[in-house]
Amino acid sequence: MKAVVVVESWFGNTREIGEAVARGLTVSGVQVEVASVDEAPAAVDGDVGLLVIGAPTHNRGLSTADTRAKAAEAVHRPVGSGAREWVASAILPDDLNLAVFDTTNGRGWLSGSAAKAAARILSGRAPGRSIQTRTFVVRGMAGPLRPGEVEAAEAWGRSLATVTR
């Protein structure tokens, strides 16, 4: 059983959640690779049973070139590509199980969801495929994560392990 976790993270919170999901998968016997969206493979191997994608919510959805530029400036890093572009272009096996999470500093419809935006793109590429989504909350724009979110991510990872069997 193999899984890949692809993460876009600017302040480290989304990466922390992605690593927690990976720990949950690992303790459940799944072999996991975690990669930043800039390092993620253009094609997911056919022996991978689960793809988990994580992204921060920017302006009620996935990041754009403009919102990434602002985030990159805030953390003094070069602007990279985002989950939006990777999700739209990655070559995915037909039988791949999909899960998407986001981090946001709010809850409810007003804050939007990068996970739901990514799931819409993926659904358009693979109609009828079930895609699990989950949101994790960050305090403020840069964090830290709300207490209990890392543990919730590990638990979600353990539950996702059942779809890779």
Rank of each mutant, 00 (worst) to 15 (best):
E154K: 01
N97C: 13
N105T: 06
G157W: 03
A22K: 01
Q132S: 14
G18N: 00
T164W: 00
L110I: 13
D47L: 10
S130K: 13
V48M: 08
E39V: 06
G148M: 06
G157I: 03
G82K: 08
F11W: 09
A117H: 04
F136A: 08
D45Y: 02
A3F: 02
A161H: 02
I17V: 13
V6Q: 03
G124Q: 14
V4D: 01
G106M: 07
A3D: 06
A71V: 02
T57I: 15
F136W: 05
P41N: 14
V32E: 06
P147F: 11
K116P: 06
G140T: 04
E85F: 10
R107E: 05
R84S: 13
K116N: 14
G143I: 11
S63K: 05
V138L: 04
A115G: 13
V37F: 08
K70Q: 14
S113P: 06
V52I: 14
V100I: 15
G61A: 15
S111N: 14
V37I: 06
L92I: 11
P147R: 09
V100F: 13
F101Q: 02
A119Q: 12
V27Q: 02
S81I: 12
S81L: 04
I17K: 04
E19N: 00
G54M: 07
E151W: 02
T103N: 04
N59C: 01
A3S: 10
S28V: 00
L145S: 00
A152Q: 01
A74G: 03
D38P: 02
